[in-house]
Structures are given as C-alpha cells and as structure tokens.
C-alpha cells in the first residue's frame, strides 16, 4: 500500500520535478520555439521567449532549398522498411526459441545479442567496400538491409520476451484443435502477440530513424535520410538558427510522438528483457 502523503510534500515534489523536467526538455522546446521566429529574433539578446511574431517562413524555406520531403521519404523508407523486414524474419525465429526451446536456444540468443555489440567502426571499411563493389553505395535498399541486420538481434529478443509470456498450452490447444504451423502462428500466436509486435515495430522504427553511423557514412545524395540532411547543416557557419530549428523540428517531431507511445517498451527492448 502506498501511503498517503501530505499535500505540502506533494506540492514540493511536483515543483521540483517540473522544474527539472522542463530544464531537461528545454533544448527541444527552445528548438521548436526558435523554428517559428525570424532569424533576427532567433539570435536576439536578450532572447525572446514567447512574444515574437510567429512565422512559418522557415519551414517553407527549408523545404524549398533542400527538398526536405525527399529526405523525409528516405527516412521513412529506410526506417520502416528495415523494421518490417526485420520483424518478418524475426517472428518465426522468436516462435522457435520461445516455444520449442532446445539446449542451444540460450546460446543462439546470446550470440545474436553479441553481434549487436560489434562496434560498427570495426567493420566500417568492409561494408563500405562491399557497397561500392555491389554498386549500392548511397542506395536505400542497401541501408534497409544493413539497418535491418543491425536491429535484428533486438527485434528477435523483444519478440522472444513477449512470446515467452504466452502460455505454451494455448498453442498446444491449437495444435490439438487441428491447426497446422501456419494457422497456429497466424490465428493464435500473432493476434495474441499484437501488443508486443506493435511495440517492437515502434521501438525499432525509432532506433532505425535515429541511426547515425551507417546513414552518414553510406549515403551522399540519393538515399540520404534526415540524419544526413541535418548533418549537412553543420558545415556552413552563420546566422541560420531559425532555419536549423525548423529543419530539426521536422526531423524529430514524428519520432517524439512515437516515442511517447513506446516509453514502457523502451526499457524492455533496450535491456533485452533484463529489466521489466
């Protein structure tokens, strides 16, 4: 039983937590606000907080100059494609490990996890070279495959931990009721695991969307997603805060919204089920 707390104590907690919360959130808030300012207001000293002439001009300029939509589309394809492909490959594997465990299941799971630990920089050149040789440098499909492989261990693990919570007896009942393997997975397992599959999709979409090693190193123009688009703003120094903010806001807004939905699954996905 949680104990009743005095209102005073609760007010103190609330105040402290909100101050810290807003401080941590401030850079994001500031970026969003600045994106609606003119460039002059963006660098004004003292800074203007809310009372400025709100404008959408920056968004229009960013889209016009850099063809923002193309980068956005690349991000959607790369993050979405790699996630969906990964889940399609991972569902059967996770089914096997959760419901037909063998002596090697644990080793396989841990080995899969270990591939995730491989530092990307250690295999940077081989992958770079392979992409050149196969003619897929700066190619969306190549990034879909690479990000899928990077996140596959997490996808398998997340699905595995969700599947393990489904009682095996239900699948056995389906088998007794005449369901084949396909029907068992399609009609019984998948509908029961929909919440788990959805969170897996969500978290891995976020991870793929924000991935900034391979997307920076293996793309230049055609396949460049938002990570690369934003990085391109780092070179020209100068007075462009409002436009930078507009571009940043557009790059993070979709993910912030998805992220709010997935905060619980985040813990489970990123700790491989070790903290629930």
């Amino acid at each position: 039983m949680a104990r009743a707390v005095t209102t005073q104590r609760k007010a103190l907690n609330t105040t402290l937590a909100w101050i810290i919360g807003l401080l941590i959130f401030f850079p994001i808030l500031w970026t969003i606000l600045t994106s609606f300012k003119t460039e002059a207001e963006a660098i004004a000293n003292p800074p203007v907080f809310l009372f400025f002439d709100w404008t959408l001009e920056n968004y229009a300029v960013v889209q016009e100059r850099s063809n923002y939509m193309r980068f956005l589309w690349n991000s959607v394809i790369i993050a979405g494609g790699s996630t969906i492909l990964g889940v399609l490959i991972a569902v059967p594997a996770a089914w096997s490990m959760a419901f037909v465990p063998s002596r090697r299941t644990k080793d396989i799971l841990l080995w899969m996890l270990s591939t995730k630990m491989l530092p990307a920089v250690g295999v940077l050149y081989p992958i770079y070279l392979l992409c050149i040789q196969l003619g897929v440098l700066d190619n969306r499909l190549a990034l879909v495959v690479i990000l899928m492989l990077i996140n596959l261990p997490i996808i398998v693990w997340m699905l595995y931990t969700y599947f393990r919570e489904i009682p095996g007896e239900i699948l056995e009942a389906a088998r007794m009721d005449g369901a084949g393997l396909k029907e068992e997975i399609l009609y019984v397992l998948t509908p029961m695991a929909i919440p788990g599959i959805a969170s897996t999709l969500l978290l891995n979409f976020i991870l793929a969307w924000n991935e900034a090693f391979w997307t920076l190193n293996l793309t230049s123009v055609d396949a460049a997603p938002l990570t690369a688009f934003i990085a391109s703003y780092s070179s020209p120094e100068g007075l462009f805060f409002a436009k930078l903010s507009a571009a940043s806001t557009m790059a993070i807004a979709p993910i912030l919204i998805l992220g709010w939905f997935s905060q619980k699954q985040l813990v489970r996905g990123l700790t491989f089920g070790a903290v629930k």
């Binding site: 007896e169 239900i170 056995e172 009942a173 389906a174 007794m176 009721d177 005449g178 029961m192």
Partner: peptide, 26 residues
C-alpha cells in the same frame, strides 16, 4: 482426440463462440 488443459488454454482474443468453433474452422 480432444484435450482440456489445466490452464484451459482458451484463445484470449476470440469470443466464446469463436473459441468453441476454432477446431471446426480448422
């Protein structure tokens, strides 16, 4: 053969009707 499990092993996402009809549907 038909089996009744200790945990009943009902399909939680299906109505009672669909649970009972499942073997027939299969």
């Amino acid at each position: 053969l038909a089996m009744v499990f200790q945990s009943y092993a009902l399909y939680p996402h299906m109505s009672v009707r669909k649970n009972i009809a499942f073997p027939l549907r299969m």
